[in-house]
Amino acid sequence: MNTSVRFKNLESSEALKNYVSDKLSRLDKYFNGPGEANVVLSIEKFRHSAEINISGDRLTIHGKEETEEMYAAIDMVLDKLEVQIKRNKQKNRAHRTKTKVEPTGNQGTHEGVGEPSTPPRVDVHPIEYKPMDVDEAIMQMDLISDNFLVFTNARTDMVNVLYRQKDGNYGLIQPRP
């Protein structure tokens, strides 16, 4: 991992640079390609702060900690960054497996806050409809045993839909002229 260490209000120290580099090397296992880390170590009065920005694998993570000791601040911010990296990697892994398992939609039941939702897949079935009156359409429905029939009403010359209701009766959908 490419590491750049900057010091603010603090003398540059090889021991701190080596400590940060060694600690950041344990995060290399989470990245496939080369990562880049920008580290800023600063002191203000009695507060020692460590701020680290890591970018790599389409992931940018930021962490900052302040304590009374610099080494403790570095350890705490690295622990915090490791948790963030694991959480993002797990989220990406879960997202990839979800799309592999459910490629045909029906993902509306798994929607959560903050998750991107994909529109459901629409299957288009072209049908042929011919002019007939409602009585003839009912007879056709009995012959084909489908739950609906699309036809052109011979009286109004408009497209109608005849459907079978759960109680066995029929329903008719007619557009208004």
Rank of each mutant, 00 (worst) to 15 (best):
N2M: 05
T3C: 15
S4W: 00
S4Y: 04
V5I: 12
R6Y: 11
K8Y: 12
E11S: 04
E11Y: 07
A15F: 05
N18W: 06
D22F: 14
D22M: 03
K23A: 08
K23T: 07
D28M: 03
Y30G: 01
G33E: 12
S42V: 04
K45G: 01
I52T: 00
S55R: 09
G56L: 08
R58N: 15
L59Q: 03
G63L: 11
E66L: 11
T67K: 02
M70A: 09
M70R: 02
Y71A: 14
A72K: 13
D75N: 02
L78C: 14
K86T: 14
K86Y: 09
H95I: 10
T97Y: 11
T99V: 14
Q107T: 13
G108H: 10
P120K: 07
D123W: 13
E128F: 10
Y129S: 09
M132H: 04
D135L: 13
E136M: 06
Q140H: 11
L143C: 09
D146M: 06
L149M: 15
V150L: 14
V150M: 15
T156W: 09
M158H: 15
M158I: 10
N160M: 12
Y163V: 09
R164P: 00
K166F: 01
D167W: 08
Y170D: 15
L172W: 00
Q174T: 05
